[in-house]
Design a protein around this nucleic acid. Structure first.
Lengths: 135, 135
DNA sequence: AGGACTGTAACGGCGCGTAATAGTCG
DNA sequence: ACGACTATTACGCGCCGTTACAGTCC
């Protein structure tokens, strides 16, 4: 059932259905009436997907990366594997960039928090000063 | 000139104009022909704006927060200041949530990077094994 | 049988990217 | 007068949120 799965993974129903529409995760079966049924593997896929989003990739890119990772499960032709490695290297680089971005963002948001706090302190000081003492 | 400013701050022309459209930053003057001219303060505002985005706020919220911060510059009425403080407290909380989110995202993306690396290692090992030894 | 859940289809919206066309600057 | 820059207008897009209406489950 999509509701249980969505809640467990932490995605909205709409999002889970949209990911399916984009070819990212298909429920491995359906009830007679058409309700989506998800296997353990499907749920794992959703978790992995959710973990990829913060890397700032489009769903297209996520789909490609998932494909690459899937293809590493059953290796057969050496020339295929070479291309596969090239693809993975590309995404490794993108992922490292994402890490750098996130770290920079953390710095920015911490600065913002400090700025807000300083303003709050200033306001509180002003209140005390104004209420206790003659203007 | 918008081009210089955008480049310096690290935003696209479109973005700077859009922020203006949303009431976030107005160029303090224009040339006779209509070209936007930015003062030092305008540029500072753009930097602050850019630093607020990673907190995941909408431009509406950013506008409100900027307004609150602006109003702390000239305090006069104690009852206003109380409301101001309440607003700031709200945004401080949101900002802390953003910090937590970013930290969780960092964990996820690092996991992803490690997953990719492991797959790459597995592929490389398979290549060596397959090329050097009989299948 | 009824209430909670699910299905599909469709529109809406933020934060810009991306032309297209025309005007401005040094 | 020329090339680089800018202004305005408008359409498009990714990633869903949000109805709306009907069907399904137990």
């Amino acid at each position: 059932m999509i509701g249980d799965v969505a809640q467990q993974v932490g995605l909205s129903l709409r999002t889970v259905r949209y990911y399916e529409e984009m070819g990212l995760v298909n429920p491995s079966s359906r009830t007679q009436g058409g309700f989506r049924l998800y296997s353990e593997d499907d749920v794992r896929r959703l978790y992995i997907l959710k973990g990829m989003k913060p890397a700032g990739m489009t769903l297209e890119e996520i789909r490609e990366l998932m494909n690459l990772l899937d293809r590493t499960e059953s290796l057969s032709d050496p020339s295929d594997v070479a291309g596969l490695l090239a693809g993975l290297r590309e995404y490794e680089a993108r992922t490292e960039e994402a890490i750098d971005r996130l770290e920079r963002h953390l710095v920015e948001v911490r600065k913002l928090r400090d700025r807000i706090r300083k303003r709050m302190s200033a306001c509180e000081a002003w209140l005390l000063e104004t209420v206790e003492q003659p203007g």
